[in-house]
Design a protein around this nucleic acid. Structure first.
Length: 491
RNA sequence: GCCCUCAUCGUCUAGGGGUCUAGGACACCAGGUUUUCAUCCUGGCGGCAGGGGUUCGAAUCCCCUUGAGGGUACCA
């Protein structure tokens, strides 16, 4: 399947991966899948101070969880490796040398302090902070003198002498043009021997034969610099597409550390379903245009087009994600939801391994009932609690009063009899029993339902009574009814 | 400061000159189902940032203003 369509997702492992990054990965994946191309996972770890292997593992793990499989890259291999930038230094060096030879780059010995001073002075004078090019034409003696001082040079890209327009042809935004005069001689190799982002990204994308560069809008302003490098090296330009950013509740670029965490791992740990997150992320900046928003992976791949992506930023709306996730939870195979819910139940202490072993079917019934009310699976325990613990009234005296009411005993006793009359106590059967109760007994609906619910669940509200009774079974219900009556007599 | 981008209900969006008294989804509100909560169904509230043009006719095209965001690092 080689049609020269190649995309890449190049995260830097300097933090846990969040919604913003993953949405970019998703869009790249979608284009690759749809155009029958390949997706490359490249790790941009040139920031030695902040990159860690641990974060790299997290990225891979979370992509896998969401089903965003790469065809090539770190952890997978391929013909264009290595795929970690720190393992590609020789390559960057090689192309940097070419630039040096062709006169497109030069060594700069200015220290960070000198640069900072220069920048500050410019800002103070209300001028644009740009590198002044003082090392542009150093003599051999000056160079030697600096080296004798022990200064480690950086490599700077030399801007074209003549001012010119640099046009980024963007699939989403159309042509965006920049004047070279707003750029300065930017650094392509750091003094620690690492390439800078703008340089490495060009070398990698070119050498890895990337055809489509799909990335966040925050990279748009850097693109002209990269285009200059492509040109200086005689590389062919890829297609560019700059995605709108995902914003936080304050409409600012999503931070790695916000009020509400947006790390992918936390969504997983809270019991969000990967397909729900997938669906939701796809709709951040893109839409099919018609009314249905619950879309399968296939439908999304089928209908996605990078050209249809929005230009404006999208606020991450957790409410909508919750709604969507709830939909998916209700629609999913019960078995799977049970498997995914068990760890939460275990953690809550409501059940233990042995209990699960012996009561899996019963737990499945409970979970099935309770899943209608949750947004994510970590909410299962609190919803399931009333099925898994004994009755405890918040206020026993008040409860007792409720049970002392006229006809309550009659209702309870009749209910018991009718339950035992049934072969199978399905929710439908219980429904019929309640109807009979209402018809045969001369009591109001409230007298039937409210005390019954209280006696059985200890609460004033909760899942539907017919389901609760069906799930517990006649015997347990009878016990609870009796206990309630007893409470009434003793208070 | 300078450069770039963006601008439709609170939020995600449809809309690419007339069919828009602007459609859908989430949230919210009301009603129905469930004599509870939730689910589910129905209905409602709510928006083209402002000002100029162009045009017989602008949410749609152009300009300005305003606002928001991004970039301007030996971060990526």
């Amino acid at each position: 399947m080689s049609n020269n369509i190649r995309l890449r997702f190049p995260p830097s492992p300097t933090g846990k991966i969040h919604i913003g990054n993953m949405r970019t990965a998703l869009f790249n994946w979608l284009v690759a899948k749809q155009k029958d191309g390949e997706l490359v996972l490249r790790i941009e770890d040139t920031d030695q101070a902040r990159s860690t292997k641990e974060f790299e593992d997290i990225i891979i793990q979370e992509m896998e969880w969401l089903g965003l499989d790469a065809d090539e890259g770190v952890g997978i291999g391929g013909d264009y490796g290595p795929y970690r930038q720190t393992e590609r230094i020789d390559l960057y060096q090689e192309y940097a040398d070419k630039l040096l030879e062709s006169g497109h780059a030069y060594k700069c010995y200015c220290t960070k302090e000198e640069l900072d001073e220069m920048r500050q002075k410019a800002i103070d004078n209300d001028e644009m902070p740009r590198y002044d090019g003082s090392c542009r034409s150093l003599t051999e003696e000056e160079r030697k003198a600096y080296e004798a001082e022990g200064r480690e040079p950086v490599l700077r890209f030399k801007l074209p002498a003549e001012e010119r327009e640099i046009v980024v042809e963007d699939l989403i935004r159309g042509d965006v043009s920049f004047s070279s005069s707003v750029l300065d001689d930017f650094i392509i190799f750091k003094s620690d021997g690492m390439p800078t982002y703008n340089f490495a990204v060009v070398i990698d994308d070119a050498l890895m034969k990337i055809s489509h560069v799909v990335r966040g809008e925050d990279h748009l302003s850097n693109t002209p610099k990269q285009i200059l490098i492509y040109e200086a090296l005689g590389f062919e330009l890829p297609e560019f597409a700059h995605l709108p950013l995902i914003l936080d509740e304050n409409k600012a670029k999503l931070k790695k550390r916000g009020k509400d965490s947006v790390y992918i791992g936390e969504f997983r740990e809270q019991g969000y379903l990967p397909e729900a997150l997938f669906n939701f992320m796809a709709l951040l900046g893109w839409s099919t245009g018609d009314e249905e928003e619950i879309l399968s992976q296939e439908e999304i791949i089928d209908r996605f087009a990078i050209e249809d992506v929005n230009k404006s930023g999208a606020v991450f709306d957790r409410e909508k994600l919750n709604w969507m996730n709830g939909k998916y939870i209700r629609a999913a195979e019960l078995d799977r939801i049970v498997d995914l819910s068990l760890p939460f139940l275990l953690e809550s202490g409501l059940v233990d391994e042995e209990y699960i072993e012996n009561n899996r079917d019963w737990l499945a019934e409970v979970i099935d009932e309770v899943r209608t009310g949750v947004d994510y699976l970590s909410q299962i325990p609190e919803e399931a609690e009333l099925f898994l613990t004994g009755i405890e009234f918040d206020n026993p005296e008040e409860a007792a009063e409720e049970f002392k009411g006229a006809d309550v005993k009659l209702v309870f006793e009749t209910l018991k009899i009718k339950m035992y009359e049934r072969e199978e106590l399905t929710a439908e059967a219980v429904g019929e029993i309640f109807k009979e109760l209402k018809n045969e007994l001369d009591v109001g609906g409230r007298t039937i339902y409210h005390p019954t619910r209280l006696a059985i669940t200890g609460r004033g509200s909760g899942p539907e009574m017919t389901s609760v009774i069906s799930i517990f079974g006649a015997e347990e219900i009878a016990r609870r009814l009796d206990a309630a009556l007893e409470l009434a007599e003793n208070n």
